[in-house]
Design a protein around this nucleic acid. Structure first.
Ligand SMILES: [Mn+2]
Ligand SMILES: [Mn+2]
Ligand SMILES: [Mn+2]
Ligand SMILES: [Mn+2]
Lengths: 218, 218
DNA sequence: CAAATAATTTAGTCTTGCCTAAAAATAAAT
DNA sequence: ATTTATTTTTAGGCAAGACTAAATTATTTG
């Protein structure tokens, strides 16, 4: 039975290898988990001995098939619980991440299966992140960052690539939520910031924000 | 923030002091938590330093007001989660205890409040155990062990005083579930075992079983 | 009441997961 | 190609929580 610490390391390595190159660095893991590089090295030795990662000294680390399967299952649980909290308990989308960080470690296959069913086998969580199925397969979403659209383009909000609470609260304020239609009114050349229209409401967002909003172009 | 271990000790001490005398013994805690007496002594020192228990060497232990409040809240969470698992996810009542043992340690006041609401503020869990409210107040249930009834008496099943899975599965087999009506047909003098009728189905149960079924006499 | 038994506490270890400081390896810069 | 800076690993420790064995205190029993 995997400890909570081991599960968090697997999840961190998984998400880091998604967003970048195959071999994840010790430092990047330490940063993601708010820990020290030396602690990471310690843990990598343990993960290696459990055949969950391949680690060559000084060369970074990658998940084994077994490690990837386990990591995916934790992501699945995290996103199912977030969906439960928002859809059933009516949490706001900026409040669920920390609670889901705890719930994802509950060990019961039956619980996951029944929860999934109870929620109607959702494909995406409240932030638009894909929920892998019981075999670890992720649904695909043909969405692109809002920052890729041109002036005059329209897009439907499909998700966000940050679950930071301040970011999400800001989106709430300017009416950005999943399913809403965004019109790109203007792109300011100077700093690539974007003027948008949602529900007849104009807003001005930075490039950084636009990069973290995922839309399906219409 | 309390560790899982601390919470489990508090809960154990709470339940032991409910069912017996005020001062709980080291050995009884060790037995309940499947650990060794020496480990219990270690932990009692820690709990004492946190003002969660009063412990006089060799004289047993009791919860402080603070300790009792925290223990009650864990019981509350355990029973709310059991209710969720049975009512919403359709677990059987013999399958929920171990999962609830994990879920009870999730830390989020908002989660508890919203879960309670989502479940319709239940007063009793799937085993008939009372669920304390947010202030720690337990609802009262005027139920009595089935073993207290006389021949010819009738009673409605209000709960059980065991969440052991084999015991609950046995009850399933003879149609004993919350709300069902039991008629006491005969009490065998020799061993005080009981012949009962439920849903026109006759069963013969031991005194030990009868003691663990709680009914409201009709 | 003394002797035997049972319960509890203490002493000394172990594992997990984390830390700091120092050493070693790799990457970047002159 | 050295020197410098960065990254990673090692060495040594700490706290929580558990264990075994031994010592101490309480309780029974003859
Ligand atoms: Mn999240
Ligand atoms: Mn999410
Ligand atoms: Mn239970
Ligand atoms: Mn229960």
């Amino acid at each position: 039975m995997l400890s909570k610490a081991v599960e968090n390391y697997l999840k961190a390595i998984f998400s880091l290898s998604e967003e970048g190159n195959d071999n994840v660095s010790t430092n990047s893991i330490a940063k993601k988990l708010n820990t020290k590089a030396s602690s990471v090295t310690d843990m990598l030795r343990k993960l290696t001995s459990k055949s969950l990662v391949n680690h060559e000294k000084y060369k970074g680390v990658s998940l084994t098939t077994k490690g990837k399967k386990l990591a995916t299952n934790i992501v699945r649980k995290h996103r199912l619980w977030e969906t439960f909290l928002v859809d059933k308990l009516h949490f706001n989308w900026d409040e669920v991440h920390d609670v889901a960080e705890q719930l994802e470690h509950i060990k019961s296959d039956k619980l996951v299966t029944l929860l999934d069913e109870f929620l109607g086998n959702p494909k995406f969580d409240p932030h638009g992140d894909p929920i892998p199925d019981e075999f670890g397969k992720f649904p695909t979403s043909n969405s692109t960052p809002l920052s890729n659209l041109k002036e005059g383009d329209k897009g439907i909000v499909m998700g966000v690539s940050q679950d930071n609470s301040t970011f999400l609260k800001f989106l709430d304020k300017i009416d950005i939520k999943l399913g809403n239609l965004i019109l790109v009114k203007d792109i300011i050349e100077f700093d690539s910031s974007v003027e948008i229209l949602i529900n007849n409401k104009e807003s001005h967002i930075s490039l950084e924000v636009a990069r973290n909003i995922l839309v399906k172009q219409k």
